[in-house]
Write a protein that binds this DNA or RNA. Structure first.
Lengths: 252, 252
DNA sequence: CGAACTTTTGATATCACTCAAGGGACGTGG
DNA sequence: CCACGTCCCTTGAGTGATATCAAAAGTTCG
């Protein structure tokens, strides 16, 4: 079977997802085929595009194959709080069908490749692909644990610790799906995004990044982040990777 | 059938749970019986007792029938962050069987009545009580939404807003299970607990509470909280109850 | 009645915010 | 290819909200 150029891209794009789900148990051939077919129907979405709005009645599950996206809420004051980062292999809300209205919005940060699973299809999976669904539920439990760690982050860490912790989390999550080179990875987000993630002002994020650079802990230029000293960053932020359930990836 | 005094207490204790689950669809008689039998085996747990520890391999699901408990994490520095409050009718982790290790601990705040569902039993429910499990999953989605709102709380609200928001959330959650009298409810937590919940220091919590009292917004004496002016507290904290999915309860 | 915990107060320190403005970088259109 | 707009990043100065430290006062409970 010969693949043309565009379907090659699509079949490559599904790898992070399969990679991720197989951490929770092997997938059968039909399941992998199913996911590959899914990826073939994914579409490209521009940066800063809302995929789902707060208050909306949800009608599909999103699967992220490329790029970076986020969940967020906006307060009546206009302040935005980013609640989670979505990286390739991540998806939103297996139990979306049980939801009446969304309590938060979902938006791309960079340009993204995103697949959608309609409610009908999902209903079918729930009945006929129990092992796939089980893997997805496990992945959701990790997402929940990550949300809790974020609460610890903004609730009890200093500015420099928050940012260091976030950078280490992303290092491990991206490494787990093969999207790092050494201790470097693409971080296609602005300092405003980081501020809205960590509950800091943009000015303070800027100064804290400079601090991290001055200490020789990171490099960050044109949206490429390099962690220069992982162990010191781990110590600084009190990072304990257990919540990510990524034993196989590990820190150097 | 005659109930003795102690089983009367137990059958009363299950009401919040049934109340809560029935918000997501009616329960069949056998399901209610099942829950009532469950409650009959609940035990009393002293205040400040850990029910589950971080790092542990979980072996049961907890169901809270009376009192107040919490999820929390402790940082290596010793700082504790409370992640969620558990009130009567709440339970922990339907998918607990898929978990390898707990990423956080669970502890009582006040004395509590707690039932346990062993993994075997839960496995059975998952197969044989789909509508009960569906109701429980819906409840879990609300818990997730609540966790997100807490992230907004500590990430972007001021001290007074955080505390006001927390008090309103608890007012609605407790009202939904019939544990308020007017705008008053038992809040069996110390100011240290509130500090660890909101990411503030105890001293600042104390001063912020005084501020709320001085403004005539709340009264708080011997662990009984009365909200004196709900509308003003709503405005102050930017409280939007939608995330709780409690349309039926409402704010005055 | 004493020990342990919790709440309260005062004084001081600091981390992070706000406001304001300047300096890239990048894309678009003339 | 330059001019211009729009983001985004950076810097400075001043302020403010919240933390820390220390100790007193109140509460609970054996």
């Amino acid at each position: 079977m010969v693949l043309d150029a565009s379907s090659e891209v699509e079949s490559r794009a599904v790898r992070p997802l399969i990679h991720k789900l197989e951490r929770f148990g092997p997938l059968a051939e039909p399941e992998r085929d199913l996911l590959t077919r899914l990826a073939a129907e994914a579409s490209l979405v521009a940066p800063r595009t809302d995929l789902a709005h707060e208050g909306e009645i949800p009608n599909c599950l999103f699967v992220f194959l490329e790029g970076m996206a986020c969940r967020y809420k906006v307060r009546s004051s206009g302040a935005r709080q980013i609640l989670a980062y979505l990286v390739p292999g991540d998806f939103c809300d297996v139990d979306v069908g049980l939801l009446t209205r969304r309590d938060h919005a979902i938006s791309t940060l960079s340009s993204c490749r995103v697949a959608r699973i309609e409610l009908d299809t999902l209903q079918d999976l729930l009945v006929n692909q129990p092992s796939l669904i089980r893997a997805m539920r496990r992945a959701t439990l990790v997402d929940d644990a990550t949300a809790r760690e974020w609460l610890v982050n903004v609730g009890s860490r200093s500015a420099i610790e928050r940012i260091a912790h976030l950078f280490l989390e992303l290092l491990l999550r991206l490494r787990a799906i093969g999207l790092t080179r050494g201790d470097s990875y693409d971080l296609p987000v602005s300092q405003l995004d980081l501020a809205e993630t960590t509950g800091l002002s943009t000015v303070h994020v800027n100064r804290t990044l400079q601090d991290l650079k001055r200490q020789g802990l990171i490099e960050l230029r044109s949206r490429l982040l390099t962690i220069r000293n992982v162990p010191r960053l781990v110590t600084l932020s009190g990072f304990n990777p257990r919540y990510l359930s990524l034993e196989t990836v590990g820190l150097p």
